[in-house]
Simulated scan of single mutants.
Amino acid sequence: MKFNPIKVAFGRHETFALRYSWLTKGYQAVSKPKGNSIFSSDEATVVLGVGKNMVNAIRYWLQAAQLIAPAQSGFETTPLGDKIFGKKGFDPYLEDEATIWLVHWLIASNPELATGWYWFFNKFHKPEFTSQEAASALLEFAKQNIQSKFSATTVKQDSAIVLRMYARSKGNTRTPIEEVLDSPLSLLGLITQAPGGRTYYSRALERDALPIGIFGFAIAQVFEAMHISELPIEDLMYAKGGYP
């Protein structure tokens, strides 16, 4: 979860926000015999039931959520992915809100593959903003901190995808129905949209629905990454630089 200015990723989601069935569908495909090469297979669109660009998006989101990892001949499921989505997994169909909180943490603490998400939840601390302000802030962050090449247009698109994933859609009738289906992460209420649609809110509020076990898991990962066994609660709550 340590930010590396050289190892960053923008735009690998093919402009598709994470959708409900994708993690389950993608994990199951990879976990099958010879499934490690599914994403490079001609059968991928048939097995996953989506177009080629969406195949790439599913692969990306599985990696960003740390549920699969590159292997010698393609991809393999991770132990955490097996615990959640395996045959005896805790929540193979993403029905428990606790799992959605966990997926949020795994994406937001993955700056190498989900740089925009890491930035928003660790660096961007405006409680009220417009989509344009968020896009400009992410682009400025990239210009000041990232040492590898990137496209300004792609960076701004990532900002839009962050908002689309976490803020519930307003049902714009001009938008195709498949594009307004809410991401599971929108259930968490971490980003909300004003009735007029121009303003977004992301405020530090009490989150009673956050399971203590998921919170403990996140803290344990922070401790492991920082090689520490204790941390002042004030630092844990208010540190704005992200961890470690």
Rank of each mutant, 00 (worst) to 15 (best):
G81W: 08
F120G: 03
V103D: 12
D91S: 08
K83V: 08
S159A: 15
V162Q: 02
A135K: 01
S136Y: 02
N145W: 10
Y166G: 09
S136P: 02
H125Q: 14
F129Q: 03
G86T: 05
E140P: 02
F150L: 00
E112D: 11
P111V: 03
N122F: 15
K149N: 14
S131C: 14
F124A: 09
G89K: 04
L102R: 08
E128H: 07
D91R: 03
F90H: 05
A135I: 00
F120S: 06
T115D: 01
F85E: 06
S148C: 13
K143R: 15
G171D: 13
S136I: 10
G171V: 10
Y166R: 07
I84A: 07
L80N: 10
A167K: 08
G74V: 04
K126P: 07
E112I: 07
Q132G: 11
A137Y: 01
M165H: 12
I107Y: 01
F121K: 08
A152G: 14
L80M: 13
F75I: 07
M165L: 11
K126Q: 14
V155R: 00
G171H: 15
K170A: 11
T153F: 14
N122T: 14
Y118M: 08
L139F: 00
N145K: 10
F121E: 06
A134F: 06
G116V: 09
L80K: 09
H104E: 09
S151Y: 08
L94Y: 06
I100V: 04
P92R: 02
V162D: 03
K83L: 10
T115I: 09
F150T: 07
G116L: 06
